[in-house]
Structure formats: structure tokens, C-alpha cells
Design a binder for these strands. Structure first.
Length: 486
RNA sequence: CGGGGCGUGGCUCAGCUUGGUAGAGCGCUUCGUUCGGGACGAAGAGGUCGCACGUUCAAAUCGUGUCGCCCCGACCA
């Protein structure tokens, strides 16, 4: 066993660098985030995984509330007649909609879609609620599950049923709707970077990547260790498309009857998949403290002749909880080394060890998950009396350190080029985000996709000196990040 | 949905080519000794070999079908 476990290797998890997919799946299962269920493509979110979701919810929800949004809940089932009102929208989602056709012994005269997203349902309700410009804006978010009939699934990244939040707002003017769309885009960026510690590129999507029925789609894009991009949140300016399709009319201050401008935006549990891939290492998960269900785990080192460490851990845990920290005492009857490995695998940011020597000295050993084993900074002894501020500071440091590592990776795997062959080479080898001046023509994007399987991720403004599209030579209109994507 | 791979105790797999009444390691349970990076001993429990049909005296093993999982493509949060 000691040979097989040399150099920090973890049982039953392949090295991350050797095979990211195998590593990813093994970590999701072994860390007890999810289990496969009897339903194809659907996973069970286990308590530890749900803990991640709860932290995501808490942090995002606070940001929604702070920007004036309210939560509500709408039905899971959507009558077909409502879903089909926005032509592009139906067409876009048709291939992956699941239908209910039977209820008990009753065969339905109109089949019901299991929501793939809720624009249809919420638009319908908004048309009833909105009469006057005084009723606007409406700023509603819902936390919900949706179903999309996927062919190939992976935990968090793509499952048939998934958890997400979907914001739906209605506004009197185009300008306000666009401002809302961009406000949320920035909120998502802030959340990804400052809570999930995942740096992203934020910007508009190309026409081909646009949400079905949207005027403009924006997204945040993270870079995974295999060089593929992960779309981690989207914010759509729907213009008046849904206002017209769902008859969301109001009388404006000038007494004219107008259609409302709407937006929609969402982040799903896919964000957790990004977190896992970006921060994890060969020992398993590394969870940023702000997302960690357990910020610190206390491991007592018990001797048969001396079990004082258990009481010391419980006492310290109480102190830490009183200070608002999420901690757990692991007093199971198992070897300390076994516990260390397990909590490493599960990505707990800080481990606190207390043994007989610590009990005597009124100290505890803090070990940080973000450092390699054997690193001189990995473990340190701290006086129990002074531990709360030390733990707080260490959590902040770990949060920052994980973000910094991810940011360095993104930066070092973003390549700006003006050379066509270099551009194609970078795209086809999954080098990372490839930053070029682009003509914004769909045919050009399609051609690059054929040649390399890479597509545009997000767009941004041209820079001085950008003249020709790096991909095709036509006049450049924007700068674009190209990458292969999940 | 195309191409490839895999389904055997909880996990990782052997057995299948050449049919003959199911194995290993780990894990699990109990007891004891242990415990500062995945402990040790003793005694136990646990599988109609994914499922269905077929071939056969006899199927984990051969055939057909089906379901599920993984990888690579096409589509999507």
C-alpha cells in the first residue's frame, strides 16, 4: 500500500493531468458530491454537493436582492400552446424538450412541456400583471430545476435535469433592458471571480451562439485545464421579441401602448463543474472557502491511553461556529492519515489537527489544502486562544491563492495572434483562449469550426491597429476569443 | 445521434478464446491491539455474473436484442 500511495497519490483517482475526464468523474463520485441515479442522465446531488449548491445560492441570491430582484416560483409544466409562441425560441429548444402526454388515466388533449427554461410561462404571467409603465420594471428570479433531453451527460456539466436560477425582467425601454442585461453579466463575473475563484472572460456572444429568441446574448467563459472553455453564465437581452410573442403590453407615460422589453439570465450547477475542474488537483477537490460546505475540519489524534483530543476538538469547534465558521469534527474511529486523505479528496480548505501534545500546549496544527504536502507553508502550529482570526485570515488567503492560480492559468493560456496559421494551430490543439481581430461573419466562424472545432466564446471591442480578420482577412469588426468548448 | 470501449459481491478487476454448479484484492461487520499522512490480528457477512430471449444435457462463458456507463465526434447551461 505505501508503494501505491507514494508522493501523495490518492486511491481510486487517476492523476488529473493524465486524464481530466476520468479524474473529474472519479472526484465527483468519490468526494460524494453526486451519485448516478436509476434515471439516465440524471444525478443525485448528495448532501456535500448540495452544500456547494447552497453556498452558490446564498451568494448569488444576496447579489440579486442587492440589485432589487425578488424570488418567485412558476410551474414546472408548460402547455405546448404557450411554448410555441416565440418561433425562434421553440425551434431552438424543440430537440430537447420532454413532454407529458398522460396524467393518471387521462390522455391530455394538449401535451405539457417539462420546462427547458421558463420564458414562455413567465412571459405569459407578465402579460397579465403588466398594464402600465408604473408596473415596470418587474425584476424576478426563480430557483428551479429544468429538463433538457441531452444525449451525452456528465455530472454538473451536462445532465438532463439540472438546478439553476433564471432571472426574468421586464422593462419599459430598450436601454433599461440592456442595462439590466449588462448589470447581471457583471454580477455573474463578480460572483465567478470572487466567490468561485474562477476568472472569466465576459462579453457578447456571436450570432450563432445566441440564445434562441434573444436580441443579444452575453456570457462569462471560464477556461478549463484541458484548454476547453466552459460557458458558466448567460445574460440575454430579449428586446421586444418575447414581449410581442406573449403580448406583454403596457401604457407608457406618453399614453402610447408599447410592448415591454424583457431580459433573462441564468447560472446553473454547471458552475460547480467548473469549480471542480479549475481548482482540483491529484489529491482531489480544492474548494474555495467561500463555496466550501465545510471551511475547516477538526481531526483529533486519539491514543488508546489519551482521548482528550476529542473534547478539545469539540470545544474548539464550538468557538469557531460561534465565530460564524462552517466546521466539522471528524471523531470517527479511523486513522488520522486516512481522514487527512479523505478530507483532502473532499477539498476542505483547512484541516485542524489536535493531538495530545497540542492539548498539553493549548495549540492546534492548521494544514491548508491549497498547498502541496511537504510544502513548508502547508502546516503550522497556532495557539488555540488566537485561532479564530488566524483561521479567518487563512481562509481569505486560500481564496485569494486559488483565484490567483486560476488567473495565472487563464492569462498564460490566452494567446493573441495576427497570424492565420498560428491561429488555426492554437484553436485545433486546444491551447486555450485564442484572441484575434474578427470579421464577425457567421460563415467565417463556421469555417473555423469546421477546420478546428473551435468557436467564438465572447466578443469585445476592437483595439487600435486591428484591421483585418485574422481568420479570413476580411475587415475586422470586433475582437473575439476562440476556443473549443464544453 | 454516429464511431469505439465496458457491464461479474459496495469498489477495482480475474475467469469467457476452448460452456461443466463463481474467485482475488480492497471495502464492510464483530472483538482486540492501534492512532501526529490511507494500521495490524482473529472471526464473519455479502454475487440468480446489467436485463430479456435463444442455442445446449448444461451458459458468467456462445448468438440475438435491449438497458446503462465511459471515451471520441455532431447538438446544447
Amino acid at each position: 500500500m505505501s508503494e501505491a500511495l507514494a508522493a501523495g497519490a490518492v486511491k481510486e483517482i487517476p492523476p488529473k493531468s493524465a486524464d481530466l475526464s476520468a479524474w473529474y468523474t472519479a472526484v465527483c463520485l468519490r468526494a460524494q458530491l453526486v451519485s448516478y441515479s436509476p434515471v439516465r442522465g440524471c444525478v443525485v446531488l448528495r448532501p456535500y454537493g448540495f452544500g456547494l449548491w447552497e453556498n452558490l445560492q446564498r451568494e448569488l441570491d444576496a447579489r440579486f436582492k442587492a440589485t432589487g430582484h425578488e424570488n418567485a416560483y412558476f410551474p414546472l409544466l408548460i402547455p405546448e400552446s404557450l411554448l410555441v409562441k416565440e418561433a425562434e425560441h421553440v425551434e431552438g429548444f424543440a430537440p430537447e424538450v420532454a413532454w407529458v402526454t398522460q396524467g393518471g388515466s387521462e390522455t391530455l388533449t394538449e401535451r405539457l412541456a417539462i420546462r427547458p427554461t421558463s420564458e414562455a410561462m413567465i412571459g405569459t404571467m407578465y402579460s397579465q400583471w403588466i398594464e402600465s409603465y408604473r408596473d415596470l420594471p418587474i425584476l424576478i428570479n426563480q430557483w428551479a430545476n429544468v429538463v433538457r433531453w441531452e444525449k451525452a451527460t456528465r455530472p454538473f456539466l451536462r445532465t438532463m435535469e439540472f438546478l439553476w436560477q433564471e432571472g426574468h425582467t421586464a422593462h419599459a425601454g430598450a436601454q433599461e433592458a440592456r442595462e439590466e442585461t449588462l448589470r447581471i453579466l457583471d454580477l455573474y463575473r463578480d460572483f465567478a471571480e470572487n466567490v468561485v475563484a474562477v476568472p472569466v472572460y465576459a462579453g457578447a456572444k456571436s450570432a450563432s451562439e445566441r440564445f434562441p429568441g434573444a436580441v443579444e446574448t452575453f456570457s462569462i467563459e471560464a477556461l478549463m485545464p484541458d484548454g476547453k472553455a466552459l460557458q458558466s453564465g448567460t445574460s440575454h437581452d430579449l428586446g421586444q421579441n418575447f414581449g410581442k410573442a406573449y403580448d406583454i403590453k403596457f401604457v407608457d407615460a406618453d399614453q402610447a401602448i408599447k410592448y415591454a422589453y424583457t431580459t433573462s439570465w441564468g447560472v446553473s450547477w454547471r458552475m460547480i463543474g467548473g469549480l471542480i475542474m479549475v481548482h482540483g488537483d491529484d489529491r482531489g477537490l480544492r474548494i474555495p472557502p467561500k463555496m466550501a460546505p465545510i471551511e475547516a475540519v477538526l481531526v483529533p489524534i486519539v491514543r488508546s491511553s489519551d482521548d482528550r483530543a476529542i473534547a478539545a476538538c469539540n470545544s474548539l469547534a464550538q468557538t469557531l461556529r460561534a465565530a460564524g465558521l462552517r466546521v466539522r469534527v471528524d471523531a470517527r474511529d479511523a486513522q488520522p492519515g486516512w481522514k487527512y486523505s479523505e478530507w483532502d479528496l473532499r477539498g476542505v480548505p483547512i484541516r485542524i489537527e489536535i493531538g495530545p501534545r497540542d492539548v498539553d500546549a493549548q495549540t492546534a496544527v492548521l494544514a491548508r489544502r491549497d498547498r502541496e504536502r511537504g510544502d513548508p507553508d502547508q502546516r503550522r502550529s497556532v495557539a488555540v486562544d488566537e485561532i479564530v482570526p488566524v483561521v479567518r485570515a487563512l481562509l481569505d488567503e486560500i481564496q485569494e491563492s486559488l483565484y490567483r492560480q486560476a488567473k495565472d492559468f487563464l492569462t498564460s493560456h490566452t494567446f493573441a495572434t495576427k497570424d492565420r496559421s498560428e491561429f488555426l494551430e492554437l484553436c485545433s490543439t486546444k491551447a486555450g483562449m485564442v484572441d484575434i481581430a474578427w470579421c464577425q461573419r457567421p460563415e467565417c466562424e463556421a469555417e473555423v469550426k469546421r477546420a478546428t472545432t473551435a468557436t467564438t466564446r465572447v466578443l469585445r471591442a476592437l483595439e487600435p491597429g486591428d484591421a483585418a480578420c485574422t481568420a479570413c482577412g476580411e475587415p475586422a469588426k470586433v475582437r473575439a476569443y476562440f476556443a473549443q468548448s464544453y
